[in-house]
Design a binder for these strands. Structure first.
Length: 528
RNA sequence: CGCGGGAUAGAGCAGCGGUCAGCUCGUCAGGCUCAUAACCUGGAGGUCGGGGGUUCGAAUCCCCCUCCCGCAACCA
């Protein structure tokens, strides 16, 4: 666990929509990674924010009789609030209407333009324009050749646009991806990206003439920068591009970003963005991780189907910690997965109430009942072996173990490996299978409710071990469930624990001082 | 042949060349009573979508087929 820097981003979310479960999912994952790295002592910059320009926002604002800026302010606030409710600890929340971002974009675009010598050229954009929407529509959006909102056929219109010479950079970007210098994960998403190259990619327009709500091109004020092109630049404007070279060097050049996102915006991030950066003379992103989509009860999540899950409802029902846990536990992070509302209740009860919560409760209760709430003396000579002969909880080497045949420290080792591989659901499973389950087994086999009377020495060994395992577990779940982690430490009587950093010292066996007065508190997760 | 993914116990998922194919939920039968009607033990339940091949050995690699799903400039 070397001390290093970690720069992680989520996409910035389009304010024309209120936060839904997908936004929450990506952001929670990013937060877990950020927290994990902070625990390891890394210096972390975790960026998220809102994307606020474009015709759609302007249009919605008009319908609501508001200025675009008003609408953006309101909706951006909703995202901030949603993230606060989910206990997201970002370093910086960028808004593309921030002055700083606008200036950075102007500088970036100017660099691409280079007084007409650069990689931007004038061209014509032709599309189907609906005067009602004041927007271009795609063929796909039309119903019977008509705009679905205004029920009339759009006109074919041409406008002057500036285009980016994407084709010039394609070979270079492709090579960078192939060599993993832009590391796209999971592997199948890398394949999918390379597939895009095979299918052919064309230069794309970077400006809009008719759209007013946006950032003007520095070299042609009559045009506004295409939202996507400008939005991508948040990743550099937020860390000082153009106005704080030192910070920019530190995070972009020396550290390099990990862009986290869902697969729908793969092309923008894996192709367009690196190409734009290269054209501007900047380093391409270091790593891009693309996760999957939800389906709800087997159906695609969409507003028109009305099956969108509001993260607020989940938080209201389960609390922030459990919501974070449940979302990440559903399926492997890199893949698509189906979500069913009943499954949340099911897993909440199984893992959190009956598993984690009940374990903490039963262990602390034994201490309250049979040892006057005091942590017993420590005894490292014991280790417990379950029926199959697997070493389940080992204090032999002073560290929590948990896997047959592996060295002590197995659980920590695996957790670190899995989280760094973005395999959150597997990491969660390790905690359930290798920590909580063995503890329950050991308790049942050892019958501490009898031995406190008949064999106090072995009772103490057992109980110290269990309490110390719970302390470790408090650390293990910390990135996923920070509040619960705090609460566990508090109940163990060591509230300061949560302020420490995870390292060889805190991970060592025996961090819980014997004699500590535990404070059995509220039930962590009341059953649904 | 547009690109990509998937098909494994009743349900949801892991495994991706080699211990009896695992886990969670459900189900059946026991046990325990410290705990949030919780926990523990055991059982039933799978010819790993179909066919062919490679291999000493395949759910795992290759080929073909069937069926689902996503993407192809709104949207995590």
């Amino acid at each position: 666990m070397a001390k290093k820097r970690f720069y992680i981003t989520t996409p910035i979310y389009y304010v024309n929509d209120k936060p839904h479960i997908g936004h929450a999912y990506t952001t929670i994952a990013a937060d877990v990674l950020a927290r994990w790295h902070r625990l390891e002592g890394d210096e972390v910059f975790f960026l998220t924010g809102t994307d606020e320009h474009g015709a759609k926002v302007a249009q919605s604002a008009e319908e609501l009789k508001k200025t675009p800026q008003q609408l953006c302010d309101e909706n951006s606030k909703k995202f901030k609030q949603a993230f606060k409710n989910l206990n997201i600890d970002y370093s910086y929340f960028i808004r593309t209407t921030d002055q700083r971002h606008k200036e950075a974009v102007a500088k970036f675009m100017q660099k691409l333009w280079k007084n007409g010598e650069g990689d931007i050229y004038e061209g014509t954009y032709e599309g189907l324009y609906c005067t009602g929407c004041e927007n271009f529509l795609t063929e796909k959006e039309l119903i019977d050749g008509k705009c679905p909102n205004h029920l009339k056929a759009p006109e074919k219109i041409k406008e002057k646009n500036y285009f980016f010479k994407l084709e010039k950079y394609l070979p270079q970007v492709r090579e960078l991806i192939e060599k993993d210098e832009i590391k796209i994960r999971p592997e199948d998403k890398k394949k999918e990206t390379l597939g895009l190259f095979k299918q052919g990619l064309e230069d794309f327009s970077v400006s809009r003439e008719r759209v007013k709500w946006g950032i003007p091109l520095p070299f042609d004020q009559s045009q506004v920068t295409y939202v996507w092109v400008e939005a991508l630049q948040n990743y550099i404007s937020a860390i000082g591009y153009g106005d704080n070279q030192k910070e920019f060097e530190k995070w972009w050049v020396e550290t390099g970003p990990l862009h986290l996102m869902a697969k729908d915006i793969l092309k923008f991030h894996c192709v367009y963005w690196p190409a734009l950066l290269l054209a501007a003379g900047e380093k391409p992103p270091k790593e891009i991780f693309v996760h999957g989509f939800f389906t709800i009860n087997g159906q695609k999540m969409s507003k028109s189907l009305g099956n969108v899950i509001d993260p607020e409802e989940l938080v209201k029902k389960y609390g922030a910690d459990a919501t974070r846990y449940l979302l990440l536990a559903q399926f492997p992070f890199g893949q698509d997965g189906d979500i069913k509302a009943e499954k949340f209740d099911e897993q909440f009860n199984a893992d959190l109430a009956n598993g984690l919560g009940n374990l903490v409760s039963r262990v602390l209760n034994l201490v309250v009942k049979y040892n006057e709430s005091k942590v017993p003396e420590r005894d490292d000579s014991t280790f417990f072996v379950d029926k199959t002969g697997m070493m389940t909880i080992s204090v032999k080497n002073g560290i929590v173990g948990g896997l047959s045949g592996t060295t002590a420290g197995g659980v920590w080792y695996m957790l670190d490996k899995l989280i760094n591989r973005f395999d959150f659901s597997a990491a969660i499973d390790i905690i359930m299978q290798r920590v909580i389950k063995p503890c329950n087994q050991v308790i049942d086999n050892s019958k501490p409710w009898e031995t406190w009377k008949t064999d106090k020495a072995s009772w103490e060994k057992l109980m110290y071990t269990l309490l110390e395992v719970i302390r470790h577990m408090g650390w293990m779940i910390r990135p996923f469930m920070p509040n619960t982690s705090d609460e566990i430490f508090k109940q163990l009587g060591i509230p300061k624990e949560g302020q420490k950093i995870l390292n060889a010292e805190t991970m060592k066996w025996g961090g819980l001082p014997p004699g500590t007065k535990i404070k059995k508190g509220k039930i962590l997760f009341p059953r649904m």
